[in-house]
Each structure stands twice: as C-alpha cells, then as structure tokens.
Design a binder for these strands. Structure first.
Lengths: 343, 343
DNA sequence: CTGAAAGCGCTAACAG
DNA sequence: CTGTTAGCGCTTTCAG
C-alpha cells in the first residue's frame, strides 16, 4: 500500500473519481457523460457536468489511450519543417487534423542520407501516434521505409505508390507544361536546375523537362543539380551565366530560381529579356520578386488534407482494396520572369 | 472475463509480458532492462534484449505515460507554422527537443483575435504534453493565457516576461540599430512598415524605430501597419511611393520588405538609389533578392534551444527563483538595399 | 438508467 | 540480482 502517487512526476489534475465523488455518482456515470453516452438521465448528467466544471476536469489522455488503444494523434515525419514545401504541407496537415480532432506530433529523421528511416519507423508502432504521414521521403529508398505491417500511413512520395497510399503533385506534367510554355515563346532550348538526386519529386521534375524537350526534338542539355536552397540556385546561375546558349531555365523550386536570377542579374543579364526563368511551388514571395516569378503552383492545402484523409481512413479501419494514389493538379502561373528570347 | 482486447481499436504490438514469456523471466526484469536499470545480470539482460529484438518490442508510450505521470512530449502552440519565424523556431525547437529525447506536438489556436487561448491552454493539463512552448502569442493579451498553475511553459513574447519564462530577440534595440544605420548614411528621416497592432514583437520594433528617431531629434512619420505578409508590404509600398520624403524604410520583417521593394520598383523607383529598405529576420532569400536585403538577423536556432531548455528545466522540477527572461542578440546584416540618399 | 469489477501495459516498491 | 504485487485513470463488460 505504498504511496506511489507521491512519486508521480507531476501533480496530476482531478480525475474521474474526484468528479464522481463531488457529484455523488459512480465513476462510470461520469465516464458515460464524458464520452457522450445516451443512457444517462439529464439531471444526473447536469450534476456531473457541473462537478467537472467546478473541478476543472479534463480527461487524462494517456489513460484513455491505454484503454482505447489509440491516441488521437498522427505523426508527421520529415527532414525539416522550415522549407517551403514542408512548412506549407505541415500547416495544411495540422488544419485538416484539427478538423478531425486529431493532434499532430512532429518527427524527424536525424540524417538525411541513409536508411535511418527504419529505426524511426520501427519505434512508431508503440509511439503515441495512430498513423503516420511521411512528407518528402528523400534519402531512403522506398523499401527502407519499413513500417510495421498494416500501420496506417500516407506518403507524399510517388516511389512508394502502390506500396503505401500516397499523395503527390503532378510533377512531371507540370514541368512539361513549364518547358512547353518556354518553347512556345520561341526559346531554342530550355536549361534545367534540378533538385537533389535522391529526391523523387526532383527526379520527376527533371523527367518532365526532358520529356518536353524530347517531344520537341531538342536534345536536353546537361542539368545542373542543386539542393533546393537559394545558395545552390545561385551557384547554378554562376555556371549557366557563362553559356550564351542559355536563354531559358526551369528550376525545380522557387528558391533556386531566386538564386539563379540573383546570379544572372549580378552578371548583368536581364531577366526576362536575356534569360527567362521558371520556378516551382509558388511561394508567397514569387509574386513580388523582381521580376515576379513565373512558376508552377502546388496546392499544398489540398495535399495536406488528402494525406490526413488517407491516414485516418486506415486508422478507422477502412482499408480500400487498392492502394490510393492521389495526384493533385498544379497550375502554371505566368508572370514577369518569362518572355520571348531577345532577337 | 470479457475479451476486452478484441475491442481495442488497433492490434497492439508485443508487450513486456510477451517478451518476458519468451525470455523466460519475469516482466519486472524486462522492464528493468528496458529502463536501463543497473541490477540485471548481463546474461539475463542479453536474453531479454534478444527476445525484445525477436518480437520487435518497443514500449507502449501510453502505458508508460500513465504510469510515470509524464509523456516525454512538449506542446508547441502557435497560430500557424508556415511563416518564417514560426517555421524556423519550430525547426529549432524540434531539434533541441530531440536531443533531450522529447517529442513535439503541434497545437494551434483556431482564431487569432480573441482569447481562444484559454480553452486551448486549459485542455493542456491533461493533454499529452508535459510542458508548453508558446511562440508569437498574438491576439490574446497576456492575462488571457491562463495556464494551470505551475504548468511548465516558455513563451516567446515579452509581454509575459516576469509572468512566464520567456525568450525573445532584442527587438527594440535591433530596430534602433537599423534606423541609426540609415540615419548615418545621411537620410533625413526613416519611414516604417510595422507588423500587426496586436503583436508584441511588432510593437517593440516600432518602439525601437521611434526611439532612434527621437534620439536624433527627428519627428517620427506615421507608420504603415502591415500584417507580416508580402502583400501587405506591397500595399504599404504603393502608399509610400507617392511621398517624395520617403528615402528610407525599415520594415518589421523581410517579407514586407520584399513587397515594399516590389511596389517601389514597379513605380520606377530604384532600390537603394531612390529609397533604402531594411528588413527583419534574414530569411534565406534576403541575401539573394534583387537587390540583396539589408536586414536584422534573428538567431532562431538559439531561441528554439533556449525555449526548450526553459520548459524542460521546469518539467524536471528545477524552478528558478526568478522568472527567466532571456534576450537573444541579433545582428544587422548590411547588404545591397541600403545606401546614402540620392543627391 | 446506474453501480461494481476488471484490465489496458507499464514500473515503483517491497520482499526474497 | 530477481519475482510478486499493486495501481496510474479510464472505459467496457456484466449485474442490478
């Protein structure tokens, strides 16, 4: 009969038992009231509600989770949360989850390169999450994401399409559209600043660029590989600026496009007169850059909402016969950074 | 003796009991091994470890939380997570928390304006978090943030300094420095695009701007109020562009500075020749904008780390005698958007 | 409609 | 060094 309670790390708040005592009913009645069960007399119910209020009761989620076997929480796994795509998706996921009364816990994988996903994922089954959303699974190859069997998950990476439910933008087609826009303006060829080699979205965007050139019968110049950062776009620009054949460049994201433009402008080349530039994402700044950036707008809100829907469908036990693969459309936003080539 | 287990929402993974059975020891021994207790014979320990491995055991955090009275989780409360400050701080908090083996769950307040903080905070004591970090407590006045007494919390808002432990940038001094830089360049006065009225950082930045002008004996022109977005900066620019007295503008963040520059440039004014512009934050794009942006760099990493430290100090029961108030220094980064006034 | 009992998985205390 | 016991707070049977 040791007083284990005294050892509790934190002073615990009022419990159901406390409420029951105050209201003069049994704990079940309180629980039933809390969970919104039907068979409680209105008057008892009022008494309980009042007692709860008076005590400032709110249920202990750990106990509830232990009892019910689920947490009301979904995990969001990414490398970092400050880059545009991640941040915007996170925000959307958060909103969608809140609408469903789920909270979101953030998880990161320490290193980007190897299969550090596996231990992270393995720990998840007993982590305080009912399901998992993985955004931008760079680094690990698809099979490295070894989730416990039947663990609810949704991924924003088409490499795992068919394996896990996934939600992606129509990367390749979007990029193809961007290139076609440039070709239609009269550019002889279109150069490309790609994302990192281990990123699937990056790869698909490159594929789209190549495809469009191929269709037009134009040999694809060597792409320059960046790492999504403005800096890498800047470096790419410093390289491309020396090549007079470069009159149009599509970049795998907006940040790199900004870096590229900065490098071009620093070298005295005018955007879009000397060189046209297209980005990808449509971040808030793109509209107000100098010049404003023509770019592919991604619908991050929609993606976040779909990711949440897909995970929660599984959490709730609705497993569809086929693994969903949702493609969210994009939109090419024409602005000031693209124009016909000079002369 | 009902089979409650069948009712569990999810198939539960292997438990300590399962491991114990396989290893041929008591549950206690397994638990001790799991928690890293000293007094377990190496050989028993190996057997247990092996059994765990074989079963793919990992502890049920809900049960552990219920038992131990804490969750190993801290909550991060903000309006949204995609804006620069929030996103960068979130990232830093996440890293710092992970170093301490804590996970982070995201919480948002639905509406920005009123005291919707209270219910959110009230729910927290029994929420799955041991402590709370609040970033940018816009909207609610300080006393609206009614936390349970002694609930571990750290806030990034100086309004609650003295009330709750808090970590902030040296907003006013930074802004003062920025204004002084502009005055030193020879500008007759410095205009200001402020953040929203209900934001404390915004207010302090405005105070800093005013203070610097005051010291120099210059009457402060009427500031224009924005809402942190590029769009609002753009609108501010459209207003200021008509005033020939405007040769230098300090903005409460980089995004608004970009919007402002865009509006100026659209009207044919050259930055920095016609008008100098200073931002606040130093986001990644600022270095590569056209022109590159002179701005006040905030140390978000440091702020995140300090916030985590402050909360965990409380979680671990070390309550300092005085409420900590940590001021993280900033740095004025001089770049291409500021120059002496023309003629 | 309400009460009593049992147990989710884990670990602190107490024996041995 | 190891096993037994009890209970964290909640909710789902089952009985009244």
């Amino acid at each position: 009969m040791a007083d284990t309670r005294a050892r509790g790390a934190r002073s615990r708040g009022p419990t159901i038992a406390d409420v029951a005592r105050l209201a003069g009913v049994s704990a079940q009645t309180v629980s039933r009231t809390a969970t919104g069960a039907e068979y409680v007399s209105p008057e008892t119910r009022d008494r309980v509600l009042h007692a709860m209020d008076q005590l400032g009761y709110s249920p202990n989620r750990a106990a509830r989770a232990l009892r019910n076997g689920h947490y009301g929480t979904i995990g969001l796994l990414a490398h970092d949360f400050h880059r545009t795509g991640e941040a915007l998706t996170t925000d959307a996921v958060l909103r969608a989850a809140r609408d469903e009364d789920y909270t979101v816990t953030l998880l990161t994988v320490p290193t980007a390169d190897t299969g550090d996903w596996t231990p992270a994922a393995a720990r998840l089954q007993h982590q305080t999450v009912d399901g998992l959303i993985i955004i931008r699974a760079e680094g690990g190859s698809a099979d490295l994401i070894a989730l416990p069997p039947r663990f609810p998950v949704a991924v924003s990476d088409s490499r795992v399409a068919g394996l896990y439910p996934c939600v992606v933008s129509d990367e390749a087609a979007s990029m193809r559209g961007a290139v076609e826009h440039l070709l239609a303006l009269g550019h002889a060829t279109v150069h490309h600043v790609a994302g990192p080699a281990d990123s699937e979205p990056a790869r698909l965007r490159t594929v789209g660029w190549q495809g469009a050139l191929e269709r037009a019968g134009i040999p694809a110049p060597k792409p320059i590989i960046g790492d999504w950062t403005v800096e890498s776009g800047h470096r790419a620009g410093q390289i491309l600026v020396n090549d007079p054949a470069v009159t149009a460049v599509v970049c795998a994201n907006d940040e790199m496009a900004f870096g590229l433009m900065a490098a071009m402008q620093a070298a005295g080349r005018v955007v879009p007169d000397d060189v046209s530039v297209v980005g990808f994402d449509d971040i808030a700044l793109s509209r107000f850059a100098n010049p404003s950036l023509t770019t592919v707008r991604q619908d991050f809100n929609r993606m976040g909402a779909e990711l949440v829907r897909l995970v929660l469908d599984q959490v709730r036990g609705q497993s569809p016969d086929t693994t969903p693969h949702i493609v969210v459309p994009t939109e090419l936003v024409l602005r000031g950074s693209t124009a016909p080539p000079r002369a």
